[in-house]
Structure formats: C-alpha cells, structure tokens
Amino acid sequence: HELALSGSAELNWLTTWQPYCSRVLDPMLGWDPGVERTVIWYDPVTNERRLTGKLAEIMSRVRFERRQEEPLPIVWIDDEECYSTSKTQIESLEPAAPVLMVRPDERIGISRRQWRLICDFLDDSSGFPSVSLDEEGTVRDHAAHVGL
C-alpha cells in the first residue's frame, strides 16, 4: 500500500476475492481503487478463466511492457500460481524488463526475507535474471489449489 501511495509501484490486485474487493476488502484495508486496482481476471458467476486468468494477465502485462520505450519490471506475488511452469511460460515471452515471481507460504504470507527481496528488486532490478522465481522454503502443496 505504501509503495503504491508513494508512486514507487503500481499495485494491481489479482485476487480470487475480486467480487468482494470494492464492497468489503478495500474498505477494510483502507485501499483506494484509484491507487490499488483490483483486476477482473475471472468471471465469478461462470468461473470462466478461473484456472488461467492470473497467468494470462501477467503475460499480457509482460507483452505490454515489451512495447514500451522504458519497460518497467514486474513483481508477481501469488501463493497458488507462481510455479516453475508459469516461469517457463513467462520466459518464453522474452520480457523487456525483469520479472520477479514470489510464492509466499500461504499460511504466513510474504516473509520478511521475501519482502527484502521485493524491495531490493524494486530499488534496482538490473542484477536480476529476466524471470526469477522465489518460493518460501516452508511452502507446502495444498489441496485447495485451483491454478496450474
């Protein structure tokens, strides 16, 4: 939130809770839809794109950044869909700016170590590979997984 408010980052929220963001979550978090944008990536009635929508949105952003004169790096944080298969698909697009994929432990969220990595990446992404994946060491597979 602070990074988005300061203009240091553009925050686009790809959450399965998207139908509840404007009514419940944004007000609870104190988020302003003009600052933190909820991306509509699946249809909550039909569930169309539920299994493919997040990665499709990230890949769309990578393609967008490839067309820019000054492409911006991307951070994708997701406890369900940041996997090596997603990394490979993003790499195939040959991003114009680095992409950092962060898979936190769903039980604790982003760790302090991962937060430092994200901040380092945002400060200077030039030393990072075109696509990197960071998975928290305590991550476990979970039965409720709906992504890749």
Rank of each mutant, 00 (worst) to 15 (best):
P27G: 11
N12S: 00
R67T: 15
E81R: 12
S60Q: 12
P44D: 03
E69G: 05
P98D: 02
A143E: 03
E10S: 10
G30D: 08
E135H: 00
S22A: 15
R140Y: 06
A144K: 14
C82G: 03
D105S: 05
L51F: 09
D141Y: 02
R103W: 09
F64Q: 14
E48H: 10
E136S: 03
E57W: 08
F128K: 01
R49T: 03
P98L: 08
T16D: 08
S132M: 14
T85D: 13
E57S: 08
W115L: 15
T85N: 02
L14F: 07
E136W: 01
P73Y: 00
M59I: 11
D120A: 15
E91W: 02
K87E: 02
M28E: 11
D134I: 07
D32G: 04
G109A: 13
F121N: 03
L122H: 02
L3M: 11
E106P: 06
R66Q: 07
S22Q: 06
L55D: 06
F128R: 05
R23Y: 11
V35N: 01
S86N: 06
W115M: 15
Y42V: 00
I118D: 03
A96S: 11
E69H: 04
R63M: 12
A56E: 11
L29Y: 13
C119N: 15
P71G: 03
E70T: 13
S130Q: 07
G53L: 03
V102S: 05
R66E: 07
G7W: 09
K54N: 01
P44W: 06
P33N: 14
G127S: 05
V139Q: 02
S111P: 11
L100M: 12
A9R: 09
L133C: 11
R23W: 07
E65W: 02
E69W: 01
